[in-house]
C-alpha cells in the first residue's frame, strides 16, 4: 500500500455535514461574499429567469467544501483546490462534503496528495465534484 505518514490512498479524510441551506443563509452569503447576483435571493428575479425558486450560489457550496477540507488538513498545506458545479443546489439542501486520498504525487517538487472531493445533498445527488492538492 502507498503510504504517506498516516495518509494512505483510499482513506476518507474529509467528512462534514452542514445545516440545510435556507433563504437566510443565501441572504447572508450574498452580502458576505460580494456576489450580489439577485438570482440567489430575489424570487421574482429567479422566476423571470426561468427558475422555480432562488437557489444556492455555487461558491457557497464550494466554501462548505473548502471548510470540510481545511477541517481535515492544515490550510497552509493546500496548494490547489478546484471544483466543477455538477448540479444546482436547491433551497433546503442538506449537504455532506467528503474527500478521499486518491493519489500521492510530487507537485512542483513537493510531496503532495490528491484529495478527490464531492458535495452531495441528502438524496445523494452530487452538486460539486472537485479535487485538492495538499502538501504531506
Amino acid at each position: 500500500m502507498t503510504q504517506a505518514g498516516s495518509r494512505s490512498v483510499g482513506d476518507r479524510i474529509v467528512h462534514k455535514t452542514f445545516a440545510p441551506i435556507m433563504r437566510h443563509t443565501l441572504a447572508l452569503y450574498c452580502g458576505a461574499s460580494g456576489d450580489h447576483n439577485p438570482i440567489h435571493v430575489d424570487l421574482d428575479f429567479a422566476k423571470k429567469a426561468g427558475f422555480p425558486d432562488v437557489f444556492s450560489h455555487g461558491m457557497l457550496v464550494m466554501a462548505y467544501l473548502g471548510q470540510a477540507l481545511t477541517d481535515a488538513v492544515a490550510p497552509k498545506n493546500v496548494r490547489a483546490f478546484s471544483t466543477r458545479f455538477a448540479a444546482i443546489t436547491q433551497l433546503g439542501a442538506r449537504l455532506t462534503c467528503e474527500g478521499h486520498v486518491t493519489e500521492l504525487l510530487d507537485h512542483n517538487g513537493e510531496p503532495c496528495m490528491k484529495i478527490t472531493l464531492a458535495a452531495k445533498d441528502e438524496t445523494g445527488e452530487a452538486k460539486l465534484l472537485g479535487e485538492a492538492i495538499v502538501a504531506r
Binding site: 450560489h57 455555487g58 461558491m59 483546490f81 478546484s82 466543477r84 458545479f85
Partner: peptide
C-alpha cells in the same frame, strides 16, 4: 446576468 451559471472554479495558491 440572468442567463449565467458557474461551471467550474479553481484556485492555485
Amino acid at each position: 446576468l440572468a442567463r449565467v451559471l458557474h461551471g467550474e472554479q479553481g484556485f492555485t495558491y
